[in-house]
């Protein structure tokens, strides 16, 4: 059975054919010209501001001028204080827990969406993507209404004659709940695209050979969907560790994340050098996560190929 893309299933069209290699648009000079505007945008909107941020991060804070161009490493040294290390660890912990929750909820959902009919897919995608069109502030207020001390759940509980039992607001758990809702689509969409590319015939073959549904999922779907899951997980993690509003509204005083510290130093304390140092540290973590994920994906691919080669040689013998 020929695999179809999300768009082709929703719109009922056929997948777009790949252009033949060696066509005029494939020439190296054309590719350079085509990527030119993006490279310029990247330079102007990313590289130059990042370089500026890096420069400010080693300048000296001045209470009234924000910074003076006297190089110092004090801003980075300050990051090594136990308080900021604790905030950093908390940020990474919240990011990891959020990503794991997204994986547990998102991979089965992505599988179901990938294998359902076009109507269910359309509705499912709409329900998945629609919350992304609402601001995070509004979504956080929605959670406050549901999870608050006098929220809907506790009111229903009291209405049924029970005590208030849900006291999750202003805790790290509340932050994770809100972040999972924000990050879930980011994990589901790449995973869905990845699962869609797996031919159903593989599943049928595995089932015919006696694989149980769990074995099928673990030994066929998961390894083949791993690149999509990994991309989604990295996206979810990166978004989760960079948030400001959600921990401010949902978390208590003990749930501050590095985004809150950056915001406070930038806006309240007007200490741009220290805020920049924290931002650079966050960017370094993000880059590290991306590099680690790519290395893990490459290692997994090498392992898969090696296993396939061994199986093939064993079969040949």
């Amino acid at each position: 059975m020929r695999p179809t893309s999300i768009s082709s299933r929703v719109e009922g069209g056929a997948p777009a054919p790949r252009p033949p290699r060696g066509a005029a648009g494939d020439a190296p000079s054309a590719r350079v010209w085509l990527s030119g505007p993006y490279v310029v945008l990247l330079l102007v909107a990313l590289v130059v501001p990042l370089a500026h941020l890096g420069a400010i991060s080693i300048f000296t804070h001045h209470p009234r001028l924000m910074f003076v161009a006297e190089p110092t490493l004090e801003n980075y040294a300050r990051l090594l204080q136990p308080y900021y290390l604790e905030v950093l660890v908390r940020t990474l912990r919240i990011g990891l827990v959020t990503t794991l929750c997204c994986m547990v909820l998102g991979v089965p959902l992505a599988y179901w969406l990938a294998r359902c009919g076009p109507t269910a897919l359309g509705i499912g995608l709409f329900l998945l993507v629609m919350p992304m069109m609402v601001s995070t502030v509004v979504r956080a207020f929605g959670w406050m209404i549901i999870l608050g001390r006098n929220g809907v759940i506790n009111q229903i509980s009291v209405g049924l004659g029970f005590e208030r039992w849900l006291f999750v607001m202003n805790t790290e758990t509340a932050v994770v709940i809100a972040l999972v809702q924000i990050c879930l689509p980011l994990l589901v969409l790449p995973t869905l695209a990845s699962i869609e590319r797996i031919p159903r015939s593989l599943e049928e073959a595995a089932a015919n050979l006696g694989a149980s549904p769990v074995q099928l999922f673990r030994r066929v779907i998961l390894p083949l969907a791993a690149p999509g899951i990994a991309s989604g997980a990295v996206l979810a993690f990166l978004v989760a560790i960079g948030v400001v509003v959600t921990p401010a509204l949902m978390g208590g005083r003990g749930s501050r994340m590095i985004g809150n510290e950056i915001y406070d130093q930038l806006i309240t304390a007007l200490n741009w050098p220290f805020a920049s140092a924290m931002a650079i540290a966050l960017i370094a973590i993000v880059l590290g996560a991306v590099i680690a994920s790519r290395a893990a994906a490459a290692a997994a691919e090498r392992f898969r190929r090696e296993a396939a080669r061994r199986r093939a040689s064993a079969g040949g013998a």
Partner: peptide, 18 residues
């Protein structure tokens, strides 16, 4: 007050919020 904004914010976060 403005001179100490940043340092006192750090103390506030460390000692009051924690």
């Amino acid at each position: 007050v403005n001179d100490h904004r940043s340092r006192y914010l750090e103390r506030w976060n460390r000692e009051v919020l924690n």
